[in-house]
Design a protein around this nucleic acid. Sequence first.
DNA 1: GCCGTTTTCGGCCCGACTGTTTTCAGTCG
Length: 575
Amino acid sequence: MSVHNTEIAEMFSRLAELLEIQGANPFRIRAYRKAAQTIEGLPHSVTSMLAEGSDLSALPGIGEDLATKIQEIVETGHLSLLDQVSSRLPGQLAELAKIPTLGPKRVKMLYDTLGIQDLKGLTQAARSGKIRKLHGFGPKTEEKILAETDKRSVTEQRITIRTAEEFAEPILDYLKSAKGVKDAMIAGSYRRRKDTIGDLDILVTCTQAKTIMDHFVAYEDVETVVSKGRTRATVMLRSGLQVDLRVVPEESYGAALQYFTGSKAHNIAVRSLAIKIGLKINEYGVFRGETRLAGRTEKEVYSHVGLPYIEPELRENWGEVEAGLHQTLPRLLTLNDLRGDLHVHSKASDGRFSIKDMALAAQERGYDYLAICDHSQRVTIAHGLDAKRLASQIEEIDRLNHTFKGFTILKGTEVDILEDGSLDLCEDLLQRLDLTVCAIHDKFNLPRAKQTERIIRAMDHPAFSILAHPTGRMINEREPYELDMEKIMDAAVERGCCLEVNAQPVRLDLNDRHCKMAKDMGVKVVISTDAHRTTDLDFLRFGVGQARRGWLEPEDVLNTRPLKELRKLLRRTSS
DNA sequence: GCCGTTTTCGGCCCGACTGTTTTCAGTCG
């Protein structure tokens, strides 16, 4: 039985949620959460680690008991403790606890006194005014519950980082325009450049906290003010996005920024480090007893616990604290390191612009090269190119290249990987191209082993250069297809193939974890936009965000290389 | 349930805000 790491992590998280409602020891609950996190962040599958005889209890946060439980899951697909607990508590209680204002304690109370076990029961009880009579509840809590249950059925999705940008940047400008504001920055997962964002956390230093609070809640997009105190306020925008504002004194700006950037797991790791050397870190600074030692800058905060500055994208507790202590943090890739885009479309298939227009737009952005990769014939809906049309596109690009100086249009294709692993265009034509970007666009539901084999078989093709959007996921739209990513990456290394980080904000595929996995396994990646119009070329920054979150350095990314070197690397290292 | 440069037992990150209290519990980030 091959159990995925995420499945094990989910079982532990779920168990933690139920135990919390049950009122179990909070530190035991935390232990399950921490274990879930550790497992999710592993570069290799636990199943394969066990097969190799690894000692799981050597992993951070996993002791003998949890190692045994993991083994149970891998062997049986079940966790008996979870089965036991969920037979005592209705499973939906965990969902109820996610409703704002409700937490484990209140859910337990509602269940014990009113027998509420799902959203429907909750709504009914709130409507009939039963909830306000319970000890610890009141009319306001009841109203909030009703307001939440009303809209619950409508939305419950995280937004993409791109959508978040569209809301975030105008609010930030608005806040910066207020009188007395010195610094303003968006912290949280937005600053860590996560692929999706749940809410925005904004941090401001200013001379008059009250003024900025009033200014904030008066923002034109604010629909409701959820809370507003002296230093903290929360609002909901009309779009449903929650925005939190915190005002901090200037001398605490660094500490607050560090604190509110998170992640929570990273902060716990840093704080634990502080405790070990007799310090305390909170959002106001680093303290020894009552004495405040630092806090103006993040760098200061980190250096007091013996760490170098850690880039926000790394702050996930995926090993960055340990790497910092050993001075082995990566020198992260930046947008400026990239010299070109290796996957864009023209109007020959489903793009909107001519090859020349796309090339000019790329040149404007300072690139050295751009690869035109239109769809192949199978994708009829996108006017995929057959052999004849691709041959004439090759000639067109050769002609166009004479008109550019210091810039090269590369000849490519986004060729379909067919169900049997063959490519959708004949080999002699593919060999005339500078590169091939190979992709799956159908048969998403093949069993895991079949889908994996399909891709590896395609990689056997001598003309295969890059695997496009390797998992096929579309954020909030389509789940990734079933794949054994470890096998795919092994196969890519063996054959000298690359994997793409598709920078379309709804794809971001490879994602951050897969980037880290590629780094650990020695797989080279390219970051490409899959642009269908000239402005899409700017999506590159989202791909860079995922790459940075996955610890990638310039050396790990092919399109940081000058053209000559790139051409050499695209040629397969083994044949 | 984990873990050890105080510890194999007794700790485990910490403060703001709200709504409910009449000094605080629960939630949240």
